[in-house]
Design a protein around this nucleic acid. Sequence first.
DNA 1: CATGTGCAAGCGGAGAGTAT
DNA 2: ATACTCTCCGCTTGCACATG
Length: 767
Amino acid sequence: MFRVPSFTGRLALLRSPATLHYIGTPRSFKEDWKTLHTKDSEAAGIARNPNSAQSKPTQKRTRTSTRRKSQATLNEKNTGGPVEEDGDQIGLEEDARKRNKPKKRKDVTSSAPVQGKDGLIQYLFEGYGGSHKKGRTKVGDSRRVQIVSKELCDDIIERMKPSLEKHVGCDIIDLNPGPGIWSSAIHDFLKPRTHVLMEPDDALYRPLLQPLLDAEGSTYKLIPKSGVVWAFLQQALSPELLPHQKVREPGDPRLEEQNDTLLVLANLGYYPKKPYRGFSSISSLVIYQLLSAARSHSLFHKYGLIRMLIWVEDEEKKMVLPRSIVNRRKSSVEAEVTCGDIFEVASSTDAVGVSLRDHNLDLESSMAVLKRMDEAGIKTPKNRQGALEMEATKSSSRDISAESQIVKREFYKELEDLERRFDAEEFSMFQDSPEGRQALETFQSLQTSARSPKLQTPEWTRMALLTKAETRWKKEAPKSTFKHEDELRELRERFAAGEFQQYQLSEDGLPKRVNKTSMAKYYTPEYKRLEYLRTRSRMENKRVARAMALSDEYDEILTMQKEILSKDGSEADSLRQEIDRRTEEWKEEMQLMNNEDDRALVYNMLDNRSAFHRDPPVLYWDRRKAEPLKTDPQEFFPKAEMALLDFQPQPLWPVLRENFPANYDVFEYIVSNLLMIPTQSIRQGLSSLAPGAFEWLVQECPSISDPNKGGNPDHDFMRVRTLTLEMYKEMTEAWLRWPFRPSRYDLLSLMGSEVHDPDAAEVGERV
DNA sequence: CATGTGCAAGCGGAGAGTAT
DNA sequence: ATACTCTCCGCTTGCACATG
């Protein structure tokens, strides 16, 4: 019934051998591409000097725009709406052409020169279509987010200085520079010998970029084409444009070295997000492809391993840089393999997405970062500190109590606010009506009555829970014995003996809470809401407290499992018994939870904790050398924050480099298969790879079972999302040693079988 | 007056629905 | 798929009233 709409499409796309050129060879574009390819770079509209830049591209645009016109009509007729590209076609290139119409360009160039940040914002506002009243004359893609703050760029460069200095005098390829604020800031610092700008919205941004090109001794070159259309990008990678770069042939060991003489900048920020096929957005697709290019040394990675500084919409950072183990999916693991480090230089600094981890871990993580920053002498300007960094600065390790702050969800703010207002008597409990006053009287008299319902004691709650579980047990498995029989009997005896009561009593012997029966309908709306939120928070706290207790207990079991490795003889035996007993108890306790979500909460907590306490931590986020700089929505146009990600590709593991890409396909097969269901157990996951795979891999990959390396000897318990890179490496190597491993053909068809679900494919096409 | 019975309302669990 | 949110439902409780 329920299908994952995105996955099939994505998988199909990933498996396609032409994936890398997917964007670059749209059907409508092939002819164009041929023309461009046969002529020299001048024909592609590359601006060598201001004169040629103005004449030649214009010719080009006229040609393409005519053809596009007819096609646009066709598309609009079919869809009756905005052009939604089919098959091989993609919006980027379409938009690029639309905007290159010379007629529109006149409008923009005729406007007043741009002055300062406000002037720039005004200019962009008009270029993006202006207000609705004036009628839309869109010149540029209005979904693109631009950086409009020079201060932000300066702060970033200041922060990145130590790692940027090695690039001074390098070449730069700059995709989507837009108004060029960021581009020129980094240009001025690096003084590159070549700076190739690839800007599809030429009409809108040329007036802003032209001064850069015209400056005395300028090393800028502008190509009015989209750099994320790979065919265009390929043209930029020519000896004419990048005379200093030499292609490193396959087999050249320098191909696996970082090439600091080339730096790639890109702005992939779109707001709102542009979903594309199985990918949640164009940016995630492009990042996927850039990383894939780094592995296969295509595109600019043919010059070596090239550092990439990429702006993405703030939400997108979690794709490659998750902050919770829950978000560590295939794309993250592949990014980890490709890049030794991915660094969030600047962003909103907030965690994004629905699944947040325990706030304590975030705080602990941030405090570790602050320590590292301190040692390295890195400081964050006050106005660039994010909420987490500020909190961590104020805290010290003793503040992280076992009492634990759980994830603070939105409604807590509302609850606190209402409690404060209620205390301040800003609203009353009951409505101002005869019934309300009557209810208030009843309420007050009940407060002194001993017979009303009260807060139950923990023992009584436990007894009630077990009673319920017993009833369920008897119904479902009447023949077996109920595992908590003893505990329940003991509780009943203690209750009978009067050792605990049903209700807690306050000091004066009166109940802690009063009966609200039949009074609720006279509550004021505010009080009603307050009551509701109180209940919510009580329930939540109870759930979290239980999850915490279970997580703590399991942590202790894991500690014992580490201890046992250094023990032997009878000592080990008794410890083993203790581990088994407590594990058994722990599992039974988990069984008592009737809610699947509650169990998931415990697993998430456990996985996040163990991932965090690895050395180094599993998540790249927890390895960061500095906290990201806080951006402000005002620093972007439109006001949608972006995150700057710093990708430094590293050589692939030897096993993946060897026999590329066949061995990489094995790795990818393992990763994508396992992480399709991130919460499945190691046993389930590995068994699903191939018959016998579980037995072979577990035996050949010791780290999977080693608690000191993040593993767990209990393969039914550990979830696949906690597999570390080391384990993946061992698994890939072991797989290739495996005499009975499925052939490459088998693997491809195994993956293929998932693609050939026509229903699923249909859903995948949706949007 | 003690005990039984029926009813309304609260409470928390479970599951459906929804957003990302 | 997963987490969040909402609603329903069944069990428990307090209470009124009936019954022995």
